[in-house]
Amino acid sequence: MSRIAYVNGRFLRHSYATVHIEDRGYQFADGVYEVIVVYNGMMIDEVMHLDRLDCSLRELCIRQPVSRAALRSIIREIIRLNKIKCGLIYLQVTRGVAKREHPFPNKAQPSIVLTAKPITMPSQKTIEAGVKVITIEDIRWKRRDIKSLALLPNIIGRQKAKEQGAFEAWQVDENGKITEGTSSNAWIVTQSGALITRTANHDILNGTTRLSILKLAKRLGIKYTERSFSIEEAKAAREAFISSATTFVTPVTQIDDVLIGDGRAGILSLGLRGSYIEYANQQGGTI
């Protein structure tokens, strides 16, 4: 079956879906995006994703391309046309097509693109083995809370991780504190059992999965603190994990050359992953 994309009002075969060469997303990375996961036929945290999209658009002074109701209908049609049961929806909005000049154009119509693709979830054996992350310098701009298209520093970091046999790279600020991964939030569990993740401000993207995990932790009676932590503290942690819309809760069992805990996924990490999947199958999902 051919994949179907949505581009500015039209549903098209994926191979025929194009945008203009002077679209400001192509010229300047002048736009934002969201990734919504479909799990067992339901979207996880749809409303939070769309709320964050609205926030990113406001921060960059980009107009809404369509109404919220219309966008939700388009998303559902993309899921239906692509027959997605377990997959992801990529949604991108740019400032639109205009003459290549740095100032905002006066009359450009925002461009919107949606695509969908199936994904395969990792096995339980893979999750229990955990993943390796490396640490790298955080060279990104200072508004990381905006889900901008400008991802080149993240791409460079992820490539470094790949070259070193790692799944992800944790970025480190000028004070030696970990901010987040290139496409995920970073978490540790201290030796005393406290769950730690960095405070959500302009330094990190406030992940929708991150927010759901914090709600679950509170419900489960797990103590947590939102604060920064160093590379040294992370390497001395009892457990560590990453979170994102596509990885859910994925245990980290190695940071650089240091094994975390006993080198296997920790009990709290696995428990939170199980709770998150249960959440996704129930109140976190929408059809």
Rank of each mutant, 00 (worst) to 15 (best):
R76H: 10
S67N: 06
A98H: 05
K99W: 11
R72D: 06
N82M: 09
L71M: 07
R95H: 12
R100Y: 07
K85D: 10
N82E: 04
L71G: 13
E77D: 14
N82Y: 08
S67H: 03
E77K: 07
N82L: 08
K83D: 09
R72K: 11
L81I: 08
V93K: 09
A98M: 03
R80P: 11
A70P: 01
E101Q: 05
I74W: 01
R68V: 03
R100N: 13
G96V: 13
S73K: 12
R72N: 01
A70Y: 00
R100H: 13
E77C: 05
I84F: 10
R95G: 05
K85S: 12
N82K: 13
K83H: 14
H102T: 02
A98I: 05
Y90E: 06
K99G: 11
L91R: 11
S67Y: 05
A98G: 08
K99R: 14
R95Q: 10
E77M: 01
R95M: 12
K85C: 02
H102V: 06
K85G: 08
K85V: 03
S73Q: 03
L71H: 08
R80K: 08
K85P: 00
I75F: 06
R95F: 15
K99E: 15
L91T: 14
Q92C: 13
N82V: 14
G87M: 09
A98K: 00
I84T: 15
A70Q: 09
I84V: 15
H102D: 02
L91Q: 07
I78T: 14
A69V: 09
R72L: 04
L71S: 13
R72F: 00
S73Y: 01
Q92G: 05
Q92H: 14
I89W: 12
Q92I: 15
H102G: 01
I74T: 07
P65C: 04
L81H: 04
R95A: 11
A70I: 00
R80N: 11
K83C: 07
A98W: 08
Q92T: 15
K83F: 10
Q92K: 10
I79T: 12
R80V: 02
E101F: 03
C86H: 15
S73C: 02
A69L: 07
T94M: 07
E101M: 07
I79D: 05
A98C: 10
R80E: 08
E77V: 02
I75W: 04
E101Y: 09
C86V: 09
G87C: 09
R68C: 04
V66N: 04
K99A: 13
I74P: 07
G87N: 08
G87F: 12
L71V: 06
I79V: 15
Y90F: 15
R76I: 00
R68M: 09
I74E: 02
R100I: 12
V66I: 09
Q92W: 15
T94C: 12
L81G: 06
R80H: 10
R72V: 01
P65D: 02
I74K: 02
S73V: 00
K85N: 09
I74A: 05
I84N: 03
R80W: 00
L81W: 00
C86N: 15
I79F: 06
I79Q: 11
G96E: 12
S73E: 11
H102W: 10
V97E: 11
V66H: 03
R95S: 10
S73H: 03
R100E: 11
V97N: 07
L91N: 08
V97G: 06
I79A: 06
L81C: 10
R80I: 00
Y90A: 03
A69D: 10
R72S: 03
V66Q: 04
G96S: 13
Q92P: 15
I84W: 09
